[in-house]
């Protein structure tokens, strides 16, 4: 781990100027880190990812990426915008938003083509990423005909084809079957091992141990209430309970019913 990639300082953001989404967020993200941003619904996780991807800009405070401040007008310059977007890729929570082309092949090709990659190279990348994500059989399919899990894998493929340095994942495992969750976790872990920086917004605590070394917890006040190693955060029962991340669970064991909480790193008996 070396240089700083993102530096977020006292960032405030409100939708339409009156619905606060982030209130005074500070964080520093270094190259090669695996970071998870957790919090209940509506605590500003997705907004943070969009800020880091330069899609929206703070009302107050600063976001610095690769040593340069992210400003709205700097994205108007095609060269600067392309330079940044080739280094940062966002996988949206709703795959239907990300897959806007008429076929899977064209969706995967969209990113590289915008960056001026030659068509032969684009075709090679399509085959490569399709193999990595096991979606070769889907290449000529129409996105709306795919299952949620297939759409999610295609959405990841559309970002992987760009081969960015930083991957931003917004709820990558929400609503997926266990096998697809496993594939996505494996993909994230492998990408990180190849030196990619991973930032994941999620409230699926069970995957955090694998996909993150550092965890930031967002609270109802739309700011970070705690940051630290995944182990320390996930073992802090009161922190998770206060922030609506764990709940009481009703179980039947050996014919008797009992109620208790599940902590992600805690073995269950």
């Amino acid at each position: 781990m070396s240089g700083i990639i993102f530096e977020v300082k006292d960032v405030h953001y409100a939708y339409l100027g009156k619905f606060p989404a982030l209130c005074g967020v500070d964080m520093t993200i270094r190259s090669g880190e695996k970071i998870a941003v957790i919090g209940a619904n509506g605590t500003g996780k997705s907004t943070l990812l969009q800020l880091l991807d330069g899609l929206i800009f703070p009302d107050r405070g600063t976001v610095t990426a690769f040593g340069e401040r992210l400003l709205e007008h700097s994205q108007d310059n095609e060269k600067a915008a392309h330079r940044f977007r080739q280094r940062v890729g966002l996988v949206f929570q709703n795959a239907d938003i990300q897959l806007f082309c008429p076929s899977v092949r064209e969706d995967i090709a969209f990113g590289p083509l915008q960056f001026g990659v030659a068509e032969d190279e684009v075709n090679r990348r399509i085959l490569d990423v399709a193999e990595v994500l096991d979606i070769q059989h889907l290449l000529d399919r129409v996105p709306h005909q795919l299952s949620i899990g297939e759409k999610r894998r295609v959405a990841i493929a559309s970002v992987l084809a760009i081969d960015p340095d930083v991957y931003l994942f917004d709820e990558p495992t929400a609503g997926l079957d266990p096998l697809t969750v496993r594939h996505i976790i494996d993909f994230i872990v492998n990408a990180n091992q190849r030196g990619k920086t991973i930032i994941t917004a999620t409230h699926d605590l069970h995957i955090i141990g694998e996909i993150a070394d550092t965890v930031y917890v967002f609270g109802r006040n739309k700011s970070i209430v705690r940051g630290g190693s995944s182990e320390s955060v996930l073992n802090d029962r009161s922190l998770l309970e206060t922030n609506n991340l764990i709940h009481m669970h009703r179980h039947h064991h050996d014919g008797r019913e009992h109620v208790h909480q599940h902590l992600p790193l805690e073995p269950h008996d």
Binding site: H82, F92, E119
Partner: peptide, 24 residues
Amino acid sequence: QMSEEVYMAMLSRGYTGEPRLLSK
């Protein structure tokens, strides 16, 4: 709302106003 989000998804993958598509 969706059109705004789709536009963001396009921007995120390098769209700057003149789309380039695969000619297969």
